[in-house]
Design a protein around this nucleic acid. Structure first.
Length: 830
RNA sequence: AGGGGAGUGGCGGAACCGGCAGACGCACGGGACUUAAAAUCCUGAGUCCGCAAGGACGUGCGGGUUCGAAUCCCGCCUCCCCUACCA
């Protein structure tokens, strides 16, 4: 390849730039050599090291760290990483002390499944996968401070995850409960919700049933109100906040007590419509409700038991999606409607969830669709108690769920819904049979997994002392070696097999005791990793609170929508606990959050192995380079939108980079550039700066740089002033090429800390602008006016144009609208 | 069912606060270079009619407000995402 030797010469760091070569000897853009050179340079110079406590403004720019899967990186990863890297590099050039770290969410199911299949220890496959991910990510030239790299499965990290868990324990936020899990009898294992598809196991398609097991729970509901309220302070998209609000699902209403007839038993129900109490014509309990067996009449017992058993076998999906028809059975018991004093039947039905509210409802079939359907199925009474207009009853045949005015409600008749709610709630309270209540859709967090590859619980079960935490100075409790990673046949976690590990002594009394054999879910490590990045090598604490006070909050957090609810909610919850414990000084961890949109395959479908439409970033880097991949992913469209991949389109940004390289390989003049070029440059600075600040419009920023190139590339001699600006604008986007360009311009220091160019507002405006001239709203001509020209100048310029005069055709000008520097619209009389 | 988002050339997308629709790029047509091709460079292009000058139409569909609407309002249609019997 001709010219290669010249290129090779330039690859020595600090080598003098070649100057004044003729066009015939122009060097090729060798992305592989340039990128390897600068990646080495950055590492050697510790260019991206974040300095704890450095005076001046800081910025914490974070990516959602990946699970290092065996499949390696896919093109979705670099999308968010490139966006955050652009912002991180930009902020560094603006003088901020930037913390931009990367690590590994390295506990998880795939490594464990792989271990079950191949016998490879998860620690080993995880180590290999991390090595692959690190190599792939480093090949893209992201400005991470690699000295802060962490992995959640590393013992030094596990230690502090367990330590933080014990802080939750101390604060009474951990408890044990009997809750249903997904149990697959065929596989002899417990499955995560994600592993259950349509009631069948993802692997093998075996039926999955719900089975109660003792589980560790975290009391996240205690923080529901704060998790909801503090959303207000965050710079997150409204849609994301809405998702979190919906997930927390706060609803206000009343709790009402119903006396069971002939028994010393009460049924508590929660309702958001206490105003419909007079229309409650029956009760429905969840099949799992504690009272069901007590109240069931002897002659109904057999049917009730059969229904309970059937419900227990159903997966959540069977109980919802497949339930086109509502099912239920009559218990034989009756309760008293406290408002009407009437006797109403008590049913059980699996459309009532044991886990929400009180696990029982008062059914108002006239005003609730679900109750209506149930009543129709079983021929139960429907009584209208809300009139839409205060005069007539609602249309029969369907539930009227809107608000209106009370009817058939005794003394309350005629009250509007909102007022009735208040009065009936007070009425119930006076009689001690009800009260105002708030319910959340959010449930406490089922925190234990019957798995191997996760953090063991630092808890010991002692026959004498109960559950006792492992002393902090004995952490971490590390995973034992086990002969088999599957759960035991009794459904116990695989850790139960490690009998030597399980047997221990009680930290409190010293007697024989057993370790808890559950492990924590994947979320545990990702709940606080952003805190560990702040102080990753601390072996006396999870992090130094003083350093946390310096770096927090995370100023910008970028990641996929798949974590819009769970991860973000869990991390916010832990953070608030740490706030209460005085470990952190901010109420919220992530101030600004941006979700990148998914990248689809070339066929417009989600990338997946089965569709065979997966793009491997390694191939793109090999062929076009990291800078081209970064640029292409940003050029595809706004960061947050979903966009299809188009391999051919990469050639566009690749050509751009080649032309940029060519531009910087030419002769450079120290003469100031012509006025027009300088104006173009400053307009570009302004546009690119605004686009980067938006953390979204990187595509238009690149367009503007392309326009700048198109504007200056035709000139034979290049002006230093323009090139110096261009290189710095390009630096966050295509950092390798920008460094090379910077060096070609004769700079000895890297471009990474070069000051970001600032625009001169006066130069951002053209001296002369083209405006549109419309006649009766139709575009007839384009004329030029001086920048800042007044209305009169616009009018004169418009009326001087022959095409405009022809369109006017001698008619009278009735009105003339001038929008300065934009258009003139001429309206004619009739 | 509910909630959120989106419909603009052959394609990805641009258009500030209501003011020249289609920037930038891909693909495509024409030309230059070449024995030839690739690459590169120049150049054309929303659609329709027209040799041309020019004209008509045009941002999912139907209305409305306005001198002027991709943008604002009302009513529909389609697609994507999330939640999914939450009382």
């Amino acid at each position: 390849m001709p010219g290669f030797s010249v290129l090779a010469n330039s690859l020595v760091p600090g080598a003098d730039r070649m100057s004044g070569h003729a066009d015939s000897s122009r060097r090729a853009y060798d992305h592989a050599a340039i990128e390897a050179k600068w990646q080495r340079y950055w590492l050697e110079h510790r260019t991206f090291r974040a300095e704890d406590g450095k005076p001046g403004p800081k910025a914490y720019v974070l990516d959602m760290f990946p699970y290092p899967s065996g499949a390696g990186l896919h093109v979705g990863h670099p999308e968010g990483y490139t966006a955050s890297d652009i912002v991180a590099r930009y902020l560094r050039m603006r003088g901020r002390n930037v913390l931009h770290p990367m690590g590994w969410d390295s506990f998880g199911l795939p490594a464990e499944q792989y271990a079950i299949q191949t016998g490879t220890h998860p620690a080993e496959s995880t180590r290999q996968n991390i090595a692959t991910f690190r190599r792939q990510i480093q090949a893209l030239g992201f400005s991470y401070d690699w000295e802060r790299e962490i992995a959640t499965s590393h013992p030094a990290y596990v230690r502090w995850t367990q330590w933080l868990f014990l802080q939750l324990w101390r604060r009474g936020l951990v408890y044990e409960a009997e809750v249903p899990v997904n149990w697959c009898p065929a596989l002899g294992t417990v499955l995560a919700n994600e592993e259950v598809i349509d009631g069948l196991s993802e692997r093998g398609g075996h039926p999955v049933i719900r089975r109660p097991m003792r589980q560790w729970m975290l009391r996240i509901t205690a923080y529901a109100e704060r998790l909801l309220a503090d959303l207000d302070e965050l710079d997150w998209s409204e849609s994301l906040k809405t998702m979190q609000q919906n997930w927390i699902g706060r609803s206000e209403g009343a709790q009402v007590t119903f006396q069971v007839e002939g028994l010393d038993a009460m049924v508590e129900v929660f309702t958001t419509r206490p105003d419909t109490l007079f229309g409650a014509t029956y009760l429905v309990l969840a099949p799992e409700h504690a009272l069901v067996r007590r109240i069931a009449a002897p002659e109904r017992r057999q049917e009730v038991e059969a229904y309970i058993a059937a419900a227990a076998c159903k997966s959540d999906l069977d109980r919802t999606e497949l339930a086109k028809q509502k099912t239920g059975v009559f218990t034989g018991a009756y309760a008293i409607n406290p408002a009407s004093g009437e006797s109403i039947p008590v049913w059980i039905g699996d459309y009532i969830l044991a886990s929400y509210g009180t696990g029982a409802i008062m059914a108002v079939p006239a005003h609730d669709e679900r109750d209506h359907e149930f009543a129709r199925t079983f021929g139960l009474e429907v009584r209208c108690v809300v009139s839409p207009d205060g005069a007539r009853a609602p249309e029969p045949g369907a539930a009227f769920t809107g608000e209106g005015f009370a009817m058939n409600s005794g003394a309350f008749d005629g009250l509007p819904t909102a007022e009735f709610k208040k009065q009936i709630t007070a009425w119930l309270e006076e009689r001690g049979i009800g009260r105002a209540a708030v319910n959340y859709r959010l449930r406490d967090w089922l925190f234990s997994r019957q798995r191997y590859w996760g953090e063991p619980f630092p808890l010991v079960r002692c026959p004498a002392c109960g559950v006792v935490p492992v002393p902090e100075n004995e952490l971490p409790v590390l995973l034992p070696e086990v002969p088999d990673y599957r759960p035991t046949s009794e459904g116990e976690p695989p850790l139960a097999r490690a009998s030597g590990w399980v047997a221990t002594s009680c930290p409190a009394c010293g007697g024989a005791a057993e370790r808890d054999t559950n492990t924590m879910p994947n979320w545990a490590g990702s709940c606080w990793y952003y805190l560990r990045f702040i102080d990753p090598r601390n072996d006396a604490a999870p992090f130094d609170p003083a350093k946390a006070a310096y770096w927090l909050p995370v100023d910008l957090y970028i990641g996929g929508t798949e974590h819009a609810v769970l991860h973000l909610l869990y991390a916010r919850f832990w953070h608030k606990v740490f706030y209460d414990a005085g470990l952190v000084t901010t109420k919220e961890p992530f101030q600004r959050l941006v979700n990148q949109g998914m990248i689809l395959g070339e066929d417009g479908e989600k990338m997946s192995k089965s569709r065979g439409n997966i793009i491997n970033p390694d191939d793109v880097v090999a062929e076009h380079g990291a800078d081209a991949l970064r640029l292409y992913e940003m050029f595809m469209g706004p960061l947050e939108s979903v966009k299809p991949w188009n391999t051919r389109a990469i050639s566009g940004v690749r050509r751009f980079l080649e032309r940029v390289f060519d531009l910087f390989s030419r002769q450079v003049s120290d003469e100031p550039p012509p006025e027009a070029e300088r104006r173009l440059t400053h307009r570009t600075i302004k546009a690119v700066t605004e686009d980067v600040e938006s953390v979204s419009q990187f595509n238009t920023a690149i367009s503007r740089m392309m326009e700048l190139l198109n504007g200056v590339a035709g000139n034979g001699v290049q002006h230093r002033e323009t090139l110096e600006t261009f290189a710095r604008l390009l630096a966050p986007f295509a950092p390798h090429l920008a460094e090379e360009a910077w060096q070609l311009l004769g700079h000895g220091d890297g471009i990474a800390r070069a000051p970001w160019p600032l625009c001169d507002e006066d130069l951002c405006r053209e001296s002369e602008v083209e405006i549109a001239v419309q006649v009766m709203g139709k575009l007839r001509a384009r004329v030029k006016v001086a920048a800042g020209a007044g209305e009169e100048a616009h009018r004169a310029a418009a009326l001087a144009d022959p095409r405009v005069l022809r369109a006017i055709g001698g008619r009278e000008v009735a009105k003339l609208i001038v929008v300065k520097e934009r258009l003139v619209n001429i309206l004619l009389g009739r």
